[in-house]
């Protein structure tokens, strides 16, 4: 059996008797992709049907499976919106506290003093090592062990007393618990960011006469932000959902509010969907915010600079008159 025509072409290294300009390129076929696409489309159709058009029999009556009218009724109800506001407040406060605590713990962890870095390590060990749900319950009930706290000389006279049981409302306990827990995780993120900045940067700053704190604030942290922001966005989104744990300390956040409603009317699934949809909405907003923050701190780096807003706008509203093939590269301008 002799070599085929195409083999001859390459083996001999010359295009004998063929007009090279007339050769046609045939891309490789992907039949698997077609099969997969059809399967996905069928599954999607089933999902849409189940979500919006199917019915089920409850207590002898045929009803729509997902009760969208119930979802619609409660989506903008004042109880749900009140819960949403509490959820957002809790997320913001816990994250702000966590970030500040995280920076402090990270700097402590990098301290040359073994007692300082050791105590930071101990903190992280404890707060990462116990479930956040347990920590929330702990702070809620801490008044049992410490009914009063007083500020004064250690082991000496006190200047004033605080009644912990009256201060520790569910909101305070939840903010405290979530922030202290988040601080442990944030400190590792901040530490990774600080370590990612080349040591030459600190040396250059010091050679200009900057103090250690100034070097950290003006040179190291701004550059560490590029490494810190993506996981922090992740943490914020995670915190939004972790805040639902605060329902166990009777805080009226989003999940607690819908639980209160469905415990009275038994529309459990529709109300859980209401809560889920709101979580999705806020998460989407956070993702947009993270995108712009990342762009802000990508200054001076080529690799990490994401596309600008106009790029995404053009992807959605593609100008019609353009017949140029899409090459995959980002348009400039």
């Amino acid at each position: 059996m002799g070599p085929s025509e195409s083999d001859q072409l390459t083996a001999s290294g010359e295009v004998s008797g063929v007009d090279p300009a007339a050769l046609e390129v045939v891309p490789v076929r992907h039949p698997g992709r077609w099969v997969a696409s059809v399967a996905v489309l069928v599954l999607l159709a089933m999902l849409v049907h189940s979500l919006f058009f199917s019915t089920t029999v409850r207590s002898g009556r045929r009803q729509p499976r997902f009760e969208w009218h119930v979802i619609d009724h409660y989506f903008f109800s004042s109880e749900v919106l009140k819960g949403l506001v509490v959820t957002i407040e809790l997320t913001v406060i816990a994250m702000a506290g966590g970030i500040v605590l995280g920076v402090v713990l990270a700097v402590m962890r990098l301290s040359p003093n073994p007692l300082v870095s050791g105590s930071s390590w101990l903190y992280i060990w404890f707060f990462r090592g116990t479930p956040v749900l347990v920590q929330l319950l702990f702070w809620y009930y801490i008044g049992y062990s410490f009914p009063h706290i007083s500020i004064g000389v250690p082991f000496g006279p006190a200047f004033f007393h605080l009644d912990l049981n009256s201060i520790l409302t569910p909101f305070v306990a939840a903010s405290f618990g979530l922030a202290l827990n988040e601080g442990a995780y944030m400190s590792e993120i901040v530490r990774a960011g600080i370590l990612s900045v080349d040591e030459g940067q600190s040396e250059a700053a010091q050679s200009l006469g900057m103090s250690r704190l100034m070097t950290l604030r003006l040179v190291v942290l701004p550059q560490a932000m590029r490494v810190i922001i993506p996981p922090t966005g992740n943490e914020t989104i995670s915190m939004l959902k972790t805040s639902s744990l605060a329902s166990v300390v009777t805080l009226g956040e989003l999940l607690f509010q819908v639980q209160t409603i469905y415990s009275a009317n038994y529309h459990t699934i529709p109300l859980l969907i209401v809560a889920s949809l709101w979580y999705l909405v806020v998460t989407s907003v956070l993702m947009v915010g993270q995108y712009f923050l990342e762009r802000r701190y990508a200054r001076g780096t080529t690799r990490a600079a994401p596309h600008n807003a106009g790029y995404w706008l053009r992807l959605v509203v593609r100008p019609r008159q353009s017949d140029a093939p899409f090459t995959g590269g980002p348009p400039h301008g």
């Binding site: 030459g200 040396e203 250059a204 700053a205 010091q206 050679s207 701004p222 550059q223 701190y297 001076g300």
Partner: peptide
């Protein structure tokens, strides 16, 4: 304060990229 009166130029520039 004493370092501020001494300029230093490094092999790898160490410019602040941001």
């Amino acid at each position: 304060a004493r370092r501020a009166g001494i300029g230093m130029v490094f092999q790898h520039f160490n410019l602040f990229p941001n």
